[in-house]
Design a protein around this nucleic acid. Structure first.
Lengths: 333, 333
DNA sequence: CTGAAAGCGCTTACAG
DNA sequence: CTGAAAGCGCTTACAG
C-alpha cells in the first residue's frame, strides 16, 4: 500500500530549516560552504522530511546526467560479464548511474539503444560491440557525449578506446601452441571481425613455423556450450584428427572437453583444448582449462579514468589504451 | 575528436519548421494530433538537425522518469542473470530505462542503492534481495515509487511481490528424492533466510517419510564452484556417506559431480546430485544435472505487467503473484 | 489543429 | 555566508 504523501522538495526542507532553497542546495552538494550552525538545522530538516534530492531536476539544471550507457550483446553466460560488473562498480562509486543497453547478439538494436542513451543525455556511451555503421558514427561524432570503444582496439577510434589486440591474442596463442609441440590445429570460433582477427593472427604465426594450415569451423554469435558439442562431432568426421582445438570461448572449450572425455580421449594428451575468456569455472574443471584472460576490471578502471579526464579538461592524452591480455596456462593444453 | 556543436533543442526544430515548440513536442509524443502537413515539415527539421529529445527535461516536466531500478547482489555467474536480462528486455520494450544496482553479495550497499534510485526518481524498485531493514522499509513506504519484491515471495509484501515459495521448492525436492528411493540426504546451501526456508521445507517432508534427518553444510553467499569442492571434502570425512546431495546452486552441483567422478564415484548410482537454478550448462554436462528451474522471463513479464497496472490505476489487484517453479529431472539424480 | 505561458525541482552567477 | 532570480528543456492545460 503506497501512501500518497507528497515527495519532499528542496523548498520543503528550506522552510523547515528557515533558510532559502539555494542554501539547502549548497549544503547538499557542498556542505563546507554553509555555516556550521545553518548546516545543523538543514541536516535536521532533511532527516525529518526524508528528503532525497531529485537528480532529474539536478541534471537538467547542470546539464550533467551522470548517466553512462554500456552496450553489450547480452548478459547470461557472457564473457562481458565481469567487465560489466566492474564498470557498474567503478562508475557507481563516482556517483554515476550505469544504464545497460542490450543490443542483441547480432547488435541489431544498437542504433535504438544509442538513441535511448542520447535521449537521456548519457555523458558517455561505452560500446563493447563492433564498430557502429556510418550513420551512427556521424550521429555520435556530432555530439559531445564521450564514446568509448572497448574490448576490440580499433586503429582509429571514433573517440577513445580501451582494449586489446585480437590479432595479438591469435599470435600469442599460436606461439604457445608451437612451443608445446602441437602441429594440427583446429579453430572453433565465430563469424565477425573480432574472431577473424584472432584467427588471422593465429594463422600468420602458424604459417611462419611452417605448420599446415589450421582447419576451422565458424558459428554465429553468441557461442555457447552446444556449439562445442557440434564442433566435436564435426571434428571427429575430419580425415585427419587435430591435436589441438582453439576455441573462441571457455564454454565451447569445456563442452569439447566433456565430449572428448566421453569419447574416450584424454585431454590434453590425445586432444588439447585452448579456451578464451578465463571464466570462473575454467580454473575449476577437470582438467582445468588453459585460456586467455582479459582483465575486465582494468578495462573498467581505464574507462572511468578517461571519463574523469574528459570531465576535467576535454583533453584526453591517450586516445587508445591497450590493456593487453594474459595466457593462463593450465591443464587442458 | 568531439565537435562541440550545440545539441539541438526542441526550439531549434520548431524554428526550422516554422511552428511553436509546443507543436513539435506534440508531434514527437503523439504524431496523430498534429496536422499531416505540419508533421511533414517537423519530421524534416528533426532529420536535418539530428534532434534527439532530452529525456531529462521530459521527465522533469511530466514527473515520470521511466527509470526502473533492479537490485541484485552481483552479475557474474549468477542465478539472477536470465531474470535480469528478461527485465531489461521487457522494460526497455516499454520505453523504460533499467538501472541495475549491485548491492554486493551480502546486500551491504542496498540502502545506498535505494537512495540512488529514489534520487533519480525511479518509478519502480525491484528487489531480488532479502527484505530491507525497518528504516528502509519506512522510507520506501512513504514514497509513491512502486516496490516489487521478486524471487522470494513474502507473506506480507512491502508493496507487491512476484516470486515463488522457497519452502515449496524444498518440499517438492524432498518428495522427488523420496520417490527415487534416496535415504541419506546431505544439504549444501547458504546462510540466509531463503536457503533456510528451502532446507526447512526439505526437512519437513523428509521427516514425514520417516527418513533420518539430513546432514548439512552452509556457506556464505554467493555460492560458487569452489564451495562444491569444499563440500565434497567435508562429505567424504563424514561417518556415513550420503546417497544424495542437494545443492543451492548448479555451480555447486557441477563441482560436486566433477569431484565425485574424480574420486571414482558414479553419479547418480553412487552419489546423486540435485542442483538449483537450471543454468544453461546444467543441460549440457555429463551427466546432465537434475535441478530446479525458476522462470526468470515469467517473473520479468509479471513485473512489467504490474507496472502497467500501477500506471493505469494505482490499484493492483493481486499483490502477490506466485510463478511457481519446475523440477527438471535429468541424469544426476 | 496550434500557440503563449506556466511549471517541473533543481543550480549557480550575481549581489550583498 | 546567504538570498533572489534566471535558466536548464521539456509538457500540457487553457485559449483560440
Amino acid at each position: 500500500m503506497k501512501s500518497p504523501t507528497r515527495t519532499p522538495r528542496l523548498e520543503d526542507v528550506a522552510q523547515l530549516a528557515g533558510v532559502s532553497s539555494a542554501t539547502v542546495s549548497r549544503f547538499v552538494n557542498n556542505p563546507q560552504v554553509v555555516a556550521a550552525e545553518t548546516g545543523k538545522r538543514i541536516r535536521a530538516a532533511i532527516a525529518q522530511t526524508g528528503y532525497v534530492p531529485n537528480a532529474i531536476a539536478g541534471s537538467l539544471a547542470t546539464s550533467r546526467s551522470r548517466l553512462v550507457s554500456v552496450m553489450i550483446p547480452d548478459i547470461s553466460p557472457s564473457v562481458f560479464n565481469s567487465t560489466v560488473e566492474a564498470m557498474i562498480d567503478e562508475l557507481t562509486a563516482e556517483g554515476k548511474v550505469v544504464m545497460i543497453g542490450l543490443t542483441g547478439p547480432d547488435f541489431a538494436r544498437l542504433g535504438a539503444q544509442v538513441d535511448a542513451a542520447l535521449a537521456r543525455q548519457a555523458e558517455a556511451i561505452i560500446l563493447t560491440g563492433p564498430m557502429p555503421d556510418e550513420a551512427l558514427n556521424a550521429k555520435l561524432r556530432a555530439r559531445s557525449t564521450t564514446v568509448i570503444q572497448t574490448w576490440g582496439l580499433p586503429e582509429e577510434p571514433l573517440d577513445v578506446a580501451v582494449g586489446f589486440s585480437h590479432a595479438a591474442v591469435g599470435e600469442e596463442s599460436a606461439a604457445f601452441a608451437i612451443r608445446r609441440g602441437y602441429r594440427r590445429a583446429h579453430l572453433v570460433s565465430t563469424v565477425g571481425l573480432r574472431a577473424e582477427r584472432r584467427r588471422d593472427g593465429f594463422r600468420r604465426r602458424w604459417a611462419e613455423a611452417g605448420l599446415p594450415d589450421p582447419t576451422q569451423e565458424l558459428f554465429p554469435i553468441p557461442l555457447h556450450f552446444g556449439h562445442g558439442r557440434a564442433a566435436f562431432r564435426t571434428m571427429r568426421r575430419m580425415a585427419e584428427q587435430p591435436d589441438l582445438v582453439v576455441c573462441s570461448s571457455d564454454w565451447v572449450a569445456q563442452a569439447l572437453i566433456v565430449e572428448a572425455q566421453a569419447a574416450g580421449l584424454r585431454v590434453p594428451d590425445d586432444l588439447a583444448v585452448l579456451g578464451f575468456g578465463n571464466m570462473a569455472f575454467a580454473a575449476e574443471m577437470r582438467p582445468t582449462i588453459t585460456t586467455v584472460e582479459i582483465d575486465g576490471t582494468r578495462i573498467a578502471r581505464e574507462c572511468a579514468a578517461m571519463l574523469r579526464q574528459r570531465a576535467l579538461s576535454q583533453e584526453i592524452v591517450e586516445r587508445r589504451i591497450d590493456v593487453g591480455f594474459r595466457l593462463v596456462v593450465r591443464e587442458s593444453a
